[in-house]
Design a protein around this nucleic acid. Structure first.
Ligand SMILES: [Mn+2]
Ligand SMILES: [Mn+2]
Ligand SMILES: [Mn+2]
Ligand SMILES: [Mn+2]
Lengths: 219, 219
DNA sequence: TCTAAAATTTAGACTTGCCTAAATTTTTTG
DNA sequence: CAAAAAATTTAGGCAAGTCTAAATTTTAGA
């Protein structure tokens, strides 16, 4: 069995590995887990002993296939619980992360599979993130960042890259929630801010900081 | 904030205090928590420091009102999660205890209140145990043990005192599940076993060991 | 390429929760 | 009521996960 802490490290390594190439560094892990580099080194030695990561001193780490399998299992749990909290209990998408962070560690495969069935096998969590399959596959989405869309294109908001309550609440206020159809009217060359049409009658300014954290699906 | 371990000790002290009079002893706690007396003593000192129990060396312990409030809060969570697992996910009453044992420690009052609403404010858990109120009151039931019922009486099965999967599965097999109406036909003076009528056409032998763990409600 | 800065690891320590063995207190019993 | 037994606490230690400070390795810059 694995501790909460080990599970959180595996998930964090997976997360960091997907948004960069090469090995995940000690300092990056220390920052994400809000601990110190020395503590990370201790844990890396332990995860390496358990064959969950490939680790060479000073060279960073990479998940083994067993480590990745475990990471995906925790991510599956996390995202299913988030769906439960939003769809069944009525929480907002900005409120569920911390609870799911705890619920993901409840140790029962049967529980997860029954929850999945109860939720009618959702494909995406409330933030648009794909839910890994029982078999441990992470479904790929072809989403682009809104910041990479060309002027004139019409797209649908499908997910977010930033999960902080502050960002999600900002989206709530501006109306840029999942499923929302928008057309990109102008791109401001100076600060890369966007003018998007959100309703036939209403347009909205979107900063580059927001645009590069919004995932959209082409026309 | 309190650790899982502290919460489990408080719940155990509450449990032991309700089924005996006077203070709860170190050895009783060691047995229930499957640890050693020396470990219990360590934890008692810590809980006393936090003013959650009244503790005098060698004299046993008693919950403070704050300790009891916390214990009831954990019990409320435990029982609500059990209702969720049985009513919504379709688990059997013999399968849910260990999962609820973990779920009860998820730290969010809002989550518990929303779960309570989602479950439509249940009064009892799948084992017939009353669910403490948000305010921290434990509803009292007037149930008697089946072993204390007189021959000739008709009663309804309302709860169990023993929660082991083995006992619950035994009840499943014999048909003595919650809500079941039975009439006590005979009491065997030798071994206190019972002959109960469970259907107009069928009767059943019930050992004293089973009867003293079954809670029933008078005619 | 050699050195200074940055990144990482090691050393030594702390807290929590647990253990065994030994000491102490309480309870029981002859 | 004194001795033996039972219950409880104390002493000393261990593993997990964290920290700070110091040492080491890698990287980057002149
Ligand atoms: Mn977590
Ligand atoms: Mn999510
Ligand atoms: Mn528990
Ligand atoms: Mn129960």
């Amino acid at each position: 069995m694995h501790s909460f802490t080990e599970e959180n490290y595996l998930k964090t390594i997976y997360y960091l590995a997907t948004r960069q190439q090469g090995e995940v560094t000690t300092n990056a892990l220390a920052e994400m887990t809000a601990t110190k580099a020395a503590s990370v080194t201790d844990m890396l030695r332990k995860l390496a002993d358990k064959q969950l990561i490939h680790y060479r001193k000073y060279q960073g780490v990479r998940l083994t296939s067993e480590g990745e399998r475990l990471a995906l299992k925790i991510i599956r749990r996390h995202r299913l619980w988030e769906v439960f909290l939003v769809d069944k209990l009525g929480f907002g998408w900005d409120e569920v992360h911390d609870m799911a962070e705890e619920l993901e560690h409840i140790r029962s495969d049967e529980l997860v599979e029954r929850l999945d069935k109860f939720l009618e096998h959702p494909q995406f969590d409330p933030h648009g993130d794909p839910i890994p399959t029982t078999a441990g596959a992470m479904p790929q989405t072809g989403y682009r960042k809104l910041s990479e869309v060309a002027a004139g294109e019409s797209v649908c908001v499908m997910g977010v890259l930033e999960h902080s309550p502050e960002f999600l609440q900002h989206l709530n206020r501006t109306g840029l929630t999942l499923g929302c159809s928008i057309t990109l009217r102008e791109i401001n060359a100076f600060d890369k801010s966007l003018l998007v049409q959100i309703q036939p009658e209403s347009t909205l300014f979107v900063s580059h900081d927001v645009a590069r954290n919004l995932l959209v699906e082409g026309e």
